[in-house]
């Protein structure tokens, strides 16, 4: 089954082409790491795929009706916004919005989804706390839980692990692996290539608005590509224990 199809997706803003020629098919059970330097177009790619900015070309998600799209994909933006002092469980329950018809109250299924998301993100202790009074990393985990509660087959997350402590970075990537094991898929942008190499089943490399590589971490994350795209000299080594990635110095 295909969860997302992009054909010749592009974005032009203020007469400047910021993204072009993106072709991508994401099936079930994948963890797709979206990597690339700052300003490469990772966020633009995800927002255009969702139809939040008008794209050229084709995106299977952008064509859906708004609520149907909300059930097909959960979107976790990079900006961590929590506008009001609501408690954690209430905030996570907002993830059920696309499942509720006008005026419909959350039912047992919705509450169960919230409970699962809370357990997954290790937030049981924070359930009744005010979300805005938590630390930045804790808030990030609450917002990931909100996206998990949406219970969509596809999760798109924009730098979800930035600002988390090491254990929760790895923990979050492992939660994504759990989702993939259930037959869902995750598209996640991230800057930590070590974590990307280790936990993603597939890497899509974006540079200057174009897709320059797409494949397993071992295929894509070559020394040449890392030097050309990121300007970094790095050691990439396949070990029996997974891929080791160690950046050494900047090039040039």
């Amino acid at each position: 089954m295909t969860l997302l199809t992009l054909r010749e997706l592009g974005v032009t803003r203020r007469g400047r082409t910021v993204l072009q020629g993106i072709n991508l098919r994401v099936g079930t059970g994948e963890i797709v790491g979206l990597i690339g330097p700052n300003g490469a177009g990772k966020t633009t790619l995800m927002r255009a795929a969702l139809g939040l900015i008008p794209p050229t070309g084709h995106s299977s998600l952008a064509q859906l009706a708004p609520r149907a799209r909300g059930r097909a994909v959960a979107w976790l933006p990079q900006a961590r916004e929590i506008a009001w002092q609501v408690d954690v469980a209430t905030l996570i329950l907002l993830g059920r919005t696309p499942h509720l018809a006008t005026g419909q109250k959350p039912n047992a299924t919705d509450r169960a989804a919230v409970d699962r998301a809370i357990a997954r993100m290790d937030l049981s202790a924070f359930r009744d706390r005010t979300a805005t009074r938590l630390s930045g990393g804790e808030q990030a985990r609450v917002l990931i839980a909100r996206a998990l509660a949406q219970d969509a087959p596809l999760l798109m997350a924009d730098e979800p692990i930035a600002g988390l402590d090491l254990a929760h970075q790895i923990g979050t990537m492992k939660r994504f692996a759990d989702l993939a094991a259930e037959g869902r898929s995750v598209i996640v942008s991230l800057h930590d290539l070590g974590l990307a190499a280790r936990h993603c089943t597939r890497l899509v490399v974006i540079d200057k608005g174009r897709m320059v590589a797409d494949g397993t971490p071992l295929e894509t994350l070559t020394q040449t590509l890392v030097r050309d795209v990121f300007g970094v000299d790095a050691l990439v080594q396949a070990t029996p224990d997974g891929i080791l990635f160690q950046p050494r110095d900047i090039v040039g």
Binding site: P66, G70, E81, I82, A83, T102
Partner: peptide, 20 residues
């Protein structure tokens, strides 16, 4: 009512959850 609740998470997240 529901749209305002969803906006707690910001405009992008609300729109992606089906709020017009």
């Amino acid at each position: 009512s529901r749209g305002l609740d969803a906006l707690t998470l910001g405009e992008d997240a609300a729109e992606a959850m089906g709020i017009g």
